[in-house]
């Protein structure tokens, strides 16, 4: 089967800072791929290159069989940024309708369905500025899902989200993946990493280990992922 997302020697420098170095990843359809690394490791830069927000210095990205940037594929992407990027002066429903319209016209029923999904039906007409942080985060997620994307990019989607909501989010992600949506999610929280199908460890712009959580633990011979991360990182530097 063809990969949903593949990168070829993807490389990005900002002046003297080498943010992402020669990254080659291949992610299959319906897979949840976790990018795991500390703050400033290049996760966000990598995701932004994948969605076409920044141009790689070298290398390229191929998604859904097309070399990026590709307008058709852009329409198949759902992207949730690190900050809850929703319009504060629009209501939940208006935010969804707006992103729906940009992404090719979305039916009213879909908007209702999404609000149901993120449990914001009764806040449909509340302005986003009046919502709690978690509710805003849910609105933001719903906006990324409005057009039933094939590819979903989530940049630290659960930062500042309470444990209960985090669990709900991961239930959504899992059910989307089972419907065939390919998900790339970045995180620096190790227990989230457990929920991904496959992980890429990233540090200082380098992807230095890849595999499922179990594989990585076994290869490192450690009891938990955090130790595995540190062990691989040490080997890499050595």
């Amino acid at each position: 089967m063809d990969a949903s997302i593949q990168t070829f020697d993807l490389d990005k420098s900002f002046g003297a800072i080498h943010a992402v170095q020669d990254v080659n990843i291949k992610i299959n359809r319906g897979e949840i791929y976790g990018l795991l690394g500390p703050n400033g490791s290049g996760k966000t830069t990598l995701i932004r290159m994948l969605v076409g927000l920044i141009k790689p210095t070298r290398g390229y990205v191929s998604m859904l069989g097309a070399r990026m940037p590709n307008k058709r594929v852009l329409g198949r992407i759902g992207y949730m940024t690190q900050t809850t990027a929703v319009y504060n002066d629009l209501s939940v429903q208006e935010n969804l309708e707006f992103f729906g319209a940009l992404l090719g016209g979305v039916k009213k029923a879909r908007v209702q369905e999404l609000m149901e999904l993120v449990e914001l039906r009764e806040r449909a007409h509340s302005l986003a500025s009046t919502l709690s942080g978690g509710m805003k985060q849910r609105t933001s997620l719903a906006c990324a899902l409005v057009h039933r994307p094939d590819l979903l990019f989530l940049d630290e989607p659960t930062v500042g989200v309470d444990p209960q909501l985090r669990r709900t989010f991961w239930q959504y992600f899992r059910s989307l993946a089972s419907e065939g949506v390919t998900i790339v999610v970045s995180s620096h929280v190790m227990d989230e990493a457990e929920r991904c199908d496959r992980l890429g460890f990233i540090r200082a712009g380098k992807l230095f280990a890849e595999g499922s959580a179990d594989e990585l633990r076994a290869r490192a011979g450690t009891a938990n992922l955090e130790d595995a991360f540190l062990k691989f990182a040490m080997e890499e530097t050595a």
């Binding site: 058709r72 852009l74 329409g75 992407i77 992207y79 990027a85 992404l103 090719g104």
Partner: peptide
């Protein structure tokens, strides 16, 4: 500043 511009750019707009 609220990040919505970035989000718009990740759409076909």
């Amino acid at each position: 500043s609220q990040g919505t511009l970035e989000r718009l750019f990740a759409t076909p707009v």
